[in-house]
Computed example of a mutant assay.
Amino acid sequence: MSTRPREALPKLRPLEVLDLDALMDIERRAYSHPWTEAIFRDCLRAGYTCWALDQRQLLIGYSVTSLAVGEYHILNLTVRPESQGRGHGRFLLRSLLNWAKTHGAENAFLEVRPSNRTALNLYLSEGFNEVGLRKAYYPSHRGREDALVMARAL
């Protein structure tokens, strides 16, 4: 019998302005070219659907999404680097897709760097398919990197 304590289940809740300090710490550590705090503030102000993923009152992940005319767009989905590899990204993605479906979305879309194999494998394993390519979409250390456009029916 194992005496190892169970890991607390993560909880999804709406993202708040008060989360931005913790969010920006994660964003800067997770990406070579992070979004700015101003971008996140604009998303909150504009009414994008923004989610926080908490575990033991610690922000471990977040997302920024948009729902319009039956289309759900995942604009940012991030898990803090030290919490990756534990299923939190999959939990967050599935939660987002379930929420979108219950709110009338028929299809979900996202962009991902081809070099981000971990994220790409997650999306493929959750039923997303490549439907397009955005040339030179992302900034990179060598200039620009393409984005794979992925979609799945809900």
Rank of each mutant, 00 (worst) to 15 (best):
S2P: 08
S2R: 06
T3N: 13
P5M: 00
R6H: 11
R6D: 15
L9W: 11
L9H: 12
P10C: 00
P10M: 09
R13V: 12
P14R: 12
E16R: 08
L18F: 12
D19I: 01
D21Q: 00
D21P: 07
D21I: 00
D21Y: 00
A22Y: 09
L23A: 09
R28F: 02
R29N: 07
A30S: 04
T36Q: 06
A38P: 05
A38I: 07
D42I: 08
A46D: 11
A46N: 09
G47I: 04
C50P: 07
L53C: 08
R56K: 07
L59R: 05
I60L: 03
G61Q: 04
Y62K: 07
S66Q: 11
S66D: 13
L67M: 01
A68D: 02
A68L: 00
V69A: 03
V69L: 00
G70K: 04
E71G: 04
N76H: 09
T78C: 01
V79C: 05
R80N: 10
P81T: 01
P81E: 08
E82C: 09
S83K: 09
R86L: 06
H88A: 04
R90V: 11
L93W: 06
R94Y: 03
R94A: 03
L97Y: 10
N98Y: 07
A100Y: 10
K101R: 13
K101E: 09
A105V: 00
E106A: 04
F109E: 02
F109G: 01
L110T: 12
E111F: 05
P114Q: 05
S115M: 02
N116E: 08
R117F: 13
L122G: 15
L124G: 15
S125H: 12
E126S: 12
E126A: 15
E126D: 14
E126I: 13
G127R: 13
G127C: 14
N129Q: 15
N129L: 14
N129Y: 12
V131I: 14
V131E: 14
G132A: 09
G132C: 12
R134D: 00
A136N: 14
Y138K: 00
P139K: 03
S140K: 02
H141G: 15
H141T: 12
R142L: 14
R144P: 08
R144A: 00
D146L: 07
A147E: 06
V149F: 03
R152L: 09
R152M: 09
A153V: 07
A153S: 12
